[in-house]
Simulated scan of single mutants.
Amino acid sequence: MIIILIKYLKYYFQTSNFFINFTFRAIISLLTSFIISLYITPYFIIFFQKKKYSQVIRLDGPKSHFKKNNIPTMGGIIILISFITSVIFWSDLYNPYLWYVLITVLFYALVGFIDDYYKIILDNSIGLVIYEKIFLQTIITITIITLFYINNTEKSSLQFIIPFFKNIKIYLNFITYLIISYLIILWISNSVNLTDGLDGMAIISVILVVFGLAFLSYITGDIQYSKYFHLPYLKYTKELVIICTTIIGSGLGFLWFNTYPATIFMGDIGSLSLGSAIGIITVLIRQEILLLIMGGIFLFESLSVIIQVFFYKYKKYRVFLMAPIHHHFELKGHLEPHIVIRFGIISLILLLITLSILKVS
Rank of each mutant, 00 (worst) to 15 (best):
L38G: 00
T41L: 06
K52L: 11
K52G: 02
Y53A: 11
S54C: 13
Q55R: 09
I57V: 15
L59R: 11
G61N: 09
G61D: 11
P62F: 12
S64F: 04
H65N: 10
H65A: 02
F66T: 02
F66I: 09
K67F: 10
K67D: 08
K67E: 14
N70M: 05
N70F: 11
I71M: 04
I71F: 01
P72G: 12
T73I: 07
M74H: 05
I77E: 08
I77M: 14
I78W: 10
L80E: 09
I81F: 10
I81V: 13
I81P: 02
F83Q: 08
T85V: 12
T85H: 00
S86L: 05
S86T: 00
I88W: 03
I88Q: 00
S91W: 08
S91V: 00
S91Y: 03
D92C: 08
D92A: 06
D92G: 06
Y94R: 13
N95Y: 07
Y100R: 10
L102R: 10
V105F: 12
V105I: 15
Y108N: 08
Y108G: 06
A109G: 15
F113S: 05
L122W: 01
N124W: 02
N124I: 02
S125N: 14
S125A: 15
I126Q: 13
L128T: 07
I134C: 01
I134M: 14
I134R: 04
T138C: 10
I140K: 06
T141I: 11
T141F: 05
I142M: 07
I144W: 02
I144T: 04
T146A: 12
Y149K: 09
Y149W: 13
I150W: 10
